[in-house]
Design a protein around this nucleic acid. Structure first.
Lengths: 118, 118
DNA sequence: AATAGTGTTATATAATTATATAACACTATT
DNA sequence: AATAGTGTTATATAATTATATAACACTATT
């Protein structure tokens, strides 16, 4: 789901935008050929300047996720296959963590630390 | 574990440093009263400029995680209690995901998206 | 008292990130 | 042919992030 950028997270806005769009592709919510909202709509959705949107789209284009058609719009260029088992594993984990009332940021920190230093 | 900052991640170095130190506190590897390496050692550990280290430490101080004693060093100011059950949940999840050969960045993207938009 | 090892403060510079604004180019519809 | 709706390119400005460097202040040991 495309949503407002978090301006206090410390993570650059254009990186957050790249991440959100990648996530949509990974989860299959945006499939090959799908058209993105117009850049001026994206500007409102993410609540950033149009140049920040463009910077994010440029990065996604460079990574092969999307392509532009001038005068028409931006389109998803490829599907990224993710085994549903993986998504289910993550859903279960998130569900358990929410039951335990842990906040997102803390969960992410532990997740990253455990991943990188088992 | 304190390690080199990833200069290509797009996430500001001082934020990565803040996150690593917070993680150590969350996992109990750095407990109340523990002394951090000197700022000049941290500079080498993280592979950044001394001012970048200071910026991170300043933020951690502002959030109450650490305190400074001039001429002596930086110390952990408080413990943050995390239920071991939570850490175990995350360990299991990470273990499963690694078995499925998914990469860290992709896992994080899905984790975040599932969390924020179940 | 001297010194080595800490943190502290300050100045300058460059690259990156984000905003504001405007004009332009292409496409599809009227 | 005109026009509304797309993406594209460009310029200026400000704030943030990161580096380099130097001098200073406090603490504990010698």
């Amino acid at each position: 789901m495309l949503r407002k950028v978090d301006k206090h997270s410390g993570i650059p806005a254009y990186i957050q935008i790249v991440n959100m769009i990648k996530s949509e592709v990974l989860l299959g919510n945006l499939q090959k050929g799908a058209q993105l909202p117009t850049i001026r709509d994206l500007q409102n959705i993410f609540d950033v300047n149009i140049n920040t949107v463009l910077k994010a789209l440029e990065k996604l284009k460079a990574e092969g996720y999307i392509e532009a058609e001038q005068g028409v719009g931006y389109f998803i260029k490829r599907d990224v296959y993710i085994d549903q088992k993986i998504i289910e594993t993550i859903r279960e984990c998130v569900s358990k963590l929410k039951d335990d009332r842990i906040d997102f940021h803390t969960a992410m920190l532990i997740f990253e630390e455990v991943w990188k230093n088992g």
